[in-house]
């Protein structure tokens, strides 16, 4: 096992950048007086962030990924989280046979 000093330095730089983003939101003023519109924008953050992260796979990879995503979304209306993952993975494996 080797640890290259330059690699360690790069990893530490990535750690610093990531920590900054993690703590920054918590450093914003505690009580923001939000208008209803701002409130709606804030409440939309969880779904908006998660969808944005997976959008390349959902919509910009291929029809198989898009279809498997739809199947996973259908599963999500019935199944707990782990079931959604299993159905999604099974769907993509099956679709990739074509």
């Amino acid at each position: 096992m080797s640890l290259d000093p330059q690699a360690l330095f790069a990893i530490l730089a990535m750690m610093g950048a990531t920590y900054l983003t993690r703590v920054a939101g918590f450093l914003l003023p505690a009580r923001l007086d939000l208008s209803p519109r701002m409130q709606a924008a804030f409440e939309a953050i969880p779904a908006a962030v998660l969808v944005a992260v997976i959008a390349p796979s959902l919509l910009a990879t291929g029809w198989r990924e898009t279809l498997a995503s739809l199947i996973a979304a259908l599963a999500a209306t019935r199944l707990p989280l782990i079931g959604v993952v299993l159905v999604g993975v099974a769907a993509i494996v099956a679709l990739r046979q074509f």
Binding site: V51, A68, L79, V84, I92
Partner: peptide, 10 residues
């Protein structure tokens, strides 16, 4: 694809 499916569930 596990990551994508997980996020859909979330």
């Amino acid at each position: 694809f596990a990551f994508t499916a997980l996020f859909i569930g979330l």
